[in-house]
Design a protein around this nucleic acid. Structure first.
Length: 112
DNA sequence: GCCGTGACGATTC
DNA sequence: CGAATCGCCACGG
C-alpha cells in the first residue's frame, strides 16, 4: 500500500497519530521507522514540518522527557501548557511523566 | 557521491 | 546539573 513515504512523511504520519494526553520521543519514532539511530533526522522532520498539517509536535519530546531548546514550540513553558491541557503529567523536575504518558508507535521493531 | 545540517542519544568531565 | 564531544542517520545542495 503506500510506498513512497519519505522518512519525513512517515514521521509526520506518526506524529499525527499520537493520541491526546500522550507523548512520544524522537528515538522511538525513528525506531518504528526502522532506523533506531535516526532520532536526529526525526527532529529535523519536525523542524521542517509544514504547519498546515496541524502536527502536534508538542507531543514529541526527547527520551528524557525534557524539551530541547526553547527556540522550538515558541517556548518550553508554552509546550508544557499544551501538554498539561491534554492530560499529560509533569514531574517536579519540570519533565514529562513518561511512566504514564509515554506512547509507543505501532510496529516498533519489537519495542524492546 | 561528498558536504553541511540538525527540535537526538549517550557518554564523559 | 551544565557543557562538551562523538556517533548516527536522512535530506538538500
Amino acid at each position: 500500500m503506500k510506498g513512497e513515504d519519505s522518512f519525513f512523511q512517515q514521521v509526520w504520519e506518526i506524529v499525527a497519530c499520537i493520541p491526546r494526553g500522550s507523548v512520544t520521543t524522537y528515538g522511538l519514532i525513528a525506531r518504528s521507522l526502522g532506523s533506531p539511530g535516526a532520532a536526529r533526522t526525526v527532529g529535523w522532520a519536525m523542524r521542517a514540518a509544514p504547519d498546515h498539517m496541524g502536527l502536534p509536535c508538542h507531543r514529541v519530546v526527547n527520551q528524557q522527557g525534557t524539551l530541547s531548546p526553547e527556540a522550538a514550540f515558541g517556548g518550553a513553558a508554552r509546550q508544557r501548557s499544551l501538554l498539561e491541557a491534554e492530560g499529560v503529567l509533569f514531574t517536579e523536575d519540570g519533565r514529562i511523566d513518561m511512566k504514564h504518558c509515554l506512547w509507543t508507535p505501532p510496529g516498533c521493531m519489537g519495542q524492546r
